[in-house]
């Protein structure tokens, strides 16, 4: 039995790789408007995949493998997070 699972892939720059978009949002919008409690912003890319799989675990495993194989993210500069959309 398979069913539909919604899997999120979030791609961000690795720690140590400069993220000018996140820095600009933080410095020139958020801090300027006084939200000083915001310590840091990282911008990234978001993909939502609709996957037919036996279980949530299988869907996540398949998506992770696919992201590696097709280089949906670039391991040289990116981290990814793969999780079920709730």
């Amino acid at each position: 039995m398979t069913s539909i699972h919604h899997v999120e892939v979030i791609i961000t720059n690795k720690k140590g790789v400069k993220d000018p978009e996140g820095e600009t949002i933080h410095r020139y919008l958020i801090l300027r408007k006084g939200y000083n409690m915001v310590q840091r912003v990282r911008a990234g890319k978001y993909l939502l995949l609709t996957v037919n799989a036996p279980s949530e675990e299988d869907a996540i495993k398949m998506v992770k493998e696919m992201c590696e194989k097709l280089r949906i993210y670039n391991p040289v500069v990116h981290d990814i997070e793969v999780r079920i959309h709730v």
Partner: peptide, 16 residues
């Protein structure tokens, strides 16, 4: 670079 034929990566310009 994306194909892995050359090392490294190319990111969005620093000035956006």
């Amino acid at each position: 670079v994306e194909a892995g034929l050359l090392p490294g990566a190319l990111l969005s310009n620093e000035n956006g």
